[in-house]
């Protein structure tokens, strides 16, 4: 943030605000290198892995090697898992098992919840019937349904998909509902002024204007879906990434546990990117919000 540096400012405007993008072209100095973003990122990542390695080597967290694995041990463990089978599946098989559950549950929930949310926002009678039931079930965390779903469906695929559907249902529906309710009323006025009917309002205003909110809901749902599938697999499963983690816990192999965590993080990250790409494609009119 050195103000002395010569600046060349390019400006872009969002709505009617002018946002300056300042490019510093000052002389290279030690201070500037030290506060460079990429330099700091590198420092932080190196420090993170070094600290992890040190903690694992020095047994600060507890006696024995079964508390934390060193980073390269985790990589080796993952490599072993891709070659050797654990419960008749290699690493890819487990990844696929979890992903399948997430995709099925997520699709079912989105297919029901989004139209229902839109419908609730558009028709107040539907809203009056569904909203109280929804409010009743909403505060129960999806994970608390695991026990009852095991009582209902046993420990097979159905109970896991059921948990994911329940967990992803809530944000999908809420966001679709709020997306329509928070549409700017001026937009309706425009359609009415141009002689549009109720159908035109819904088709040309409600749907496009609520798209960004719906996609935000889908993103939240996805991360919840991964949490749910993991929780369900931790409680009872014969396959999936949660199973790898549980096996690692039972065998006291932290390398396997951390490997499973890394893979699930990568998978969750991948699906998030996929939805973001889809969103860019489907609703380019969404204003880009700077942030995480």
């Amino acid at each position: 943030m050195s103000q002395e540096a010569t600046c060349s400012a390019a400006s872009s405007s969002i709505a009617n605000e002018t946002v300056g993008q300042v490019v510093d072209r000052g002389p290279i100095s030690l201070g500037r290198i030290l506060t460079n973003r990429w330099f700091l990122h590198t420092v932080s990542i190196v420090a993170f892995f070094w600290l992890w390695d040190w903690l694992a080597r020095s047994n600060v967290l507890g006696a024995g090697s079964s508390v934390l694995a060193r980073p390269h041990e985790v990589l080796e463990q993952l490599a072993v898992l891709t070659r050797e089978e654990l419960a008749e599946l290699t690493l890819w098989g487990h990844v696929w098992a979890s992903t399948q559950r997430v995709v099925i549950g997520f699709s079912i929930a989105a297919a029901i919840a989004v139209p229902l949310g839109l419908f609730m926002a558009l028709n107040r009678y539907v809203n009056a019937i569904v909203k109280p039931l929804f409010d009743l079930l909403k505060p129960m965390p999806p994970i608390s349904w695991i026990s009852i779903s095991i009582l209902w469906f046993g420990i097979g695929e159905t109970s896991k998909v059921f948990i994911i559907v329940l967990g992803t249902f809530v944000p999908c529906l809420l966001n679709a509902y709020n997306g329509v309710r928070l549409v700017e009323p001026e937009l309706y006025d425009v359609v009415r002024m141009l002689g549009g009917k109720r159908r035109d309002e819904i088709l040309h205003v409600c749907f496009p204007a609520s798209f960004p909110a719906i996609f935000a809901g889908l993103q939240i749902s996805l991360s919840i879906a991964w949490t749910c599938v993991l929780a369900a697999e931790l409680v009872s499963a014969r396959s999936g990434m949660g199973y790898i983690i549980v096996q690692g816990m039972n065998l006291s192999q932290p390398a396997m546990v951390i490997g499973g965590m890394a893979v699930i993080a990568a998978a969750a990250w991948g699906t998030t990117l996929l939805v973001t790409a889809l969103e860019r494609k489907l609703c380019p009119w969404k204003r880009k919000i700077v942030g995480l």
Binding site: L68, S223, V246, S252, M261, A265, W269
Partner: peptide
């Protein structure tokens, strides 16, 4: 961030 908190449970039990 992308690691679901639930995934930390086994490690936490170790620790």
């Amino acid at each position: 961030r992308p690691i679901p908190p639930v995934a930390w449970i086994p490690l936490t039990i170790f620790w």
